[in-house]
Design a protein around this nucleic acid. Structure first.
Lengths: 163, 163
DNA sequence: CCTGTAAATGTTATAATGTTTCAAATTTTG
DNA sequence: CAAAATTTGAAACATTATAACATTTACAGG
């Protein structure tokens, strides 16, 4: 699990991270949730990588900060961030990624490139609808959907082997 | 992770397991794959539980058989069974379940009841189609889909608290 | 029937991921 | 300020998964 990914689409990554943090602060304020320094730092670390980051990767970054954290610190921060819709856990990777639709109610769908490791989060209403319908057709009350698609992103499909 | 679940729909469970094993033998024969005693036993154990079974649950069952197995034995058998479409791994549970559509090419979709732990595998063409379209709209070549829906099954929805 | 080769399994150790528990500090609230 | 609640620290532990290498078994060709 490597940190500091090259983002999928070139952009000013610092600005992108800062925007995410600014948004997160606003969202937490609206929800009366406390975005404490640890939580904010974890969110920042996750955003600095556009690739999913494992909990122990986050832990290692914290340690290299000089912050001597133990696993529960990280998992607690991640739980908080998930609960407030600021990060997603990618179950098929045991890793976390910043939510690109924070604040909006949505069901995430993730396109995970097996070659470069980048992940794109989508909101696909047609998919959500089809999933809801399939569940309710079975009398099932859906609460939480995990939808992760592994494959090849356009870049790696065209030109294998780059980052 | 408890073994020996009460199946979701009442039925003759032994017969159900036996059918799955018979099918598995036929499928392996067609594919020139060797369904060795260990592999078959693991498949049987997984089928005997309609709830997903963790790798270490399987391991424990093997041990109580008197078969003194180590983790790699189980993981190898599970890999084999997955590769031949005989079991699925449920990423959100770190557990395995017998495939109810073995032999057919399909993308599994799983309805996981958080109350009773039962899992229903569905094939929903409308969902698969919507997912494929969403991926290809992004130029993404989808290879493998993880689609797991947690919630409440009809029984637990109506009458919470039973197994 | 031997025998070389590949596939499968055994065995030990260890890595990676995640949780429990209880104590201490901090923040919020009355 | 003081009590209560939330957050964080810290140590130990539980669970899930893999690496590495030795041994056994199945099987095709001589």
């Amino acid at each position: 699990m490597s940190a500091r990914a090259i983002p999928y689409r070139p952009h000013n990554h610092d600005a992108c991270v800062n925007q995410a943090l600014t948004d997160a602060r606003a969202i937490c304020q609206r929800q009366n949730a406390r975005l404490t320094p640890i939580r904010e730092r974890v969110l920042e670390l996750i955003w600095q990588s556009h690739k999913p980051l494992g909990a122990y990767d986050v832990l290692a970054e914290l340690s290299s900060d000089g912050h001597n954290a133990a696993p529960p610190t990280v998992y607690r921060a991640l739980d908080f961030l998930q609960q407030h819709g600021l990060v997603h856990r990618i179950a098929s990777l045991n890793a976390f990624i910043g939510c690109t639709h924070a604040g909006e109610s949505h069901t995430g769908m993730f396109l995970i490139c097996r070659a470069c490791g980048n992940v794109l989060e989508l909101t696909a209403p047609a998919v959500s609808k089809a999933v809801s319908k399939a569940a309710s057709d079975e009398g099932f009350r859906a609460e939480n959907t995990t939808l992760e698609i592994a494959g090849l992103c356009p870049r790696c499909h065209a030109e294998p082997g780059h980052d």
